[in-house]
Amino acid sequence: MIINHPLLGPRDSAEFIYMGDAGLINRPDPETASGEEWYAYAYLRDNPAGEHRELWWHEGGDRSWLVVTRNTVTHEISKVEIARDVARAQGRSK
């Protein structure tokens, strides 16, 4: 698979480490979250067959975190974003 890195252009997916569902960006607030929320965050996954937003870490490159939208049935990649931009768009400060 080729991941079209927003900054570096097309890169071999072997340069990246797969880090799971992009929902992991939304870590529960440690001050207020319940045990149930932590359980769901740490262990439960949607695991869809089809379009999946997921985190890839460019370990063998610029060490950026990306949010890749990829089809788990065809492996086709339709969108690549910088994870920081996604998090900020969701209201995170950093």
Partner: peptide, 18 residues
Amino acid sequence: GNSGRLMAMAGMRLPIES
């Protein structure tokens, strides 16, 4: 292999990735 897809029909999320 397909547990996630099947159990989603019962409204369940599983501690599993395929």
